[in-house]
Design a protein around this nucleic acid. Sequence first.
RNA 1: GCCUCAGUAGCUCAGCUGGAUAGAGCACCGGACUUCUAAUCCGAUGGUCGCAGGUUCGAAUCCUGCCUGGGGCACCA
Length: 550
Amino acid sequence: MTPETLAEKVLSATRAAFEALGLDGAVLPSRTAVERPRDPKHGDYASNIALQTAKKAGTNPRALAEQIAGILAAADGVAKVDIAGPGFLNITLDAAAAGEIAGKIVAAGPSYGTNGSMEGVYANLEFVSANPTGPIHAGGTRWAALGDALARIMRASGAKLTTEYYVNDAGAQIDHFASSLLARAKGEPTPENGYVGAYIDEIAADVLKRRPDALDAPEPLEVFRTVGLELMLDDIKGTLADFGTHFDVFFSENDLHQRGELDAAVQRLSELGHVYEADGAVWLRTTDFGDDKDRVLKSSKGAWTYFAADCAYYLDKRERGFEKLVLMLGADHHGYVGRMQAISRAFGDEPGTLEILIGQFVNLLSNGEPVRLSKRAGTIITLNDVVEAVGVDAARYALTRYSADSAIDLDIDLWTKHGNENPVYYVQYAHSRTNGIIRTATERGVALGDGYDASLLSHPLETELLKVLAEFPAVVATAAELREPHRIARYAEELAGAWHRFQSSGCRVAPGHDEDPTPVNVARLWLATASRIVFANALGLLGVSAPERM
RNA sequence: GCCUCAGUAGCUCAGCUGGAUAGAGCACCGGACUUCUAAUCCGAUGGUCGCAGGUUCGAAUCCUGCCUGGGGCACCA
């Protein structure tokens, strides 16, 4: 029995109890959940529904719990229901009912963990969106890992999602980028506000390789702008692809300008009555929507601001049909939240249409000291530096196992260790060990066959492992709802612990060398196979590999 | 000054949409490999959940104020 099924039984038992006691069923929630108690003495699952509803219904939690327990105890698969403390229901399942979950997981395979919590949500998830004037830095690396994992998790929860990278290929920064390239190509010093680093020299050289005539062209700067941008963007795309992060759309800001979408967006905002002119500039009255000051759309010099492009981009996304726009930004951009939300409201959208996730910074540590300089970029640590230091798997795992709200110190020494102090190895090793055990059991004649006797999975550590396995779909759903990929990593670590404990307990999956397989071996092979599936699925949601052998 | 994130074991962090005796890894101490991967496991030690109030049957979790640290407050991009 899955926790979800049990929760439904708890709810229907509660409904029946309300009826029996003549209480008003209107106070009951439409759904409830059971939790896995920390203390095994409290049964397999616990429900606090009596505590949550008794007061509203005007009765005593304990009395209500008594009534629910009586009804629930008679349900299929429920062995025992105890009442504890102020009114907790402690539920123990039949071993067979608990053991069924292994079969369900094996049957579901790669789809185990998918759930419908975001079914029908048509969403756009934008992340990284680093300026194409240089390599992706450490902060962007975090969003690359986190955003990609979140995309996988939301899709596993049924969302119809497009991932998107906004390319700021218009404006002054690109001008500085182009003039920096041109200067280096001519062997001149980098101009003021220019970009420096080995990559500028490389790209300048590559532009010349592709366009040997670049310096003699009628407008050399334009050649360096166009070709340089393309090369830089290709470099970024390649880096992201190597990192396992996929974007459905790379959206060009320049296209917005070319298509006249800024004028159209501002026109629309103007019609809605939120635009005014003052001091020679054109403003959006964002203060009507909670921003702390109004924002300029067009400067007194007649140039569109970046903010005007933001408005156009927002409108473009909405006109492409997305109902929910999720935007991941670094903590250095949190000041943008107010004005971005104001754009959404100014266009008449409901609160919640635009959702902005703010993530804190990443520091790279080596020997306990912050690493500050990048080999290639010269100034700041890049995604490639991080991957070079710890590898893709460790980097992705390290960047997704912490809440985005926490600033993290990524310690190179820790994340390259081969031991259980390194969480990614701990989890990957558990997977490969599971795989090895299945391999050995298979060699010794154990096969899944047509089925297994679920009641044989009754050892306390088997029961515990089954409960952890059963939790996975709910963990995925919660991670999707709260946009918190780190829950998947933490869950994987918990599962690894449960698995290692099970297999260290003397509960053997494979028979001894000269022994014939028993029904217990078969049942455990189902359990091991289910475990392997969940490890692989959990790591898959994080974009981390699940090695067969280590 | 305002906004925002964080403050939980010696260290790094979970837990925070209110629930039972606050957890994990590391570190330290003591154990377990003729047996499916010891890259593992078991046990012990370790806590005024930053401080002070409040809300209630119940607060690490919600509210208010304060303290400390990170980040941010452009007609830049």
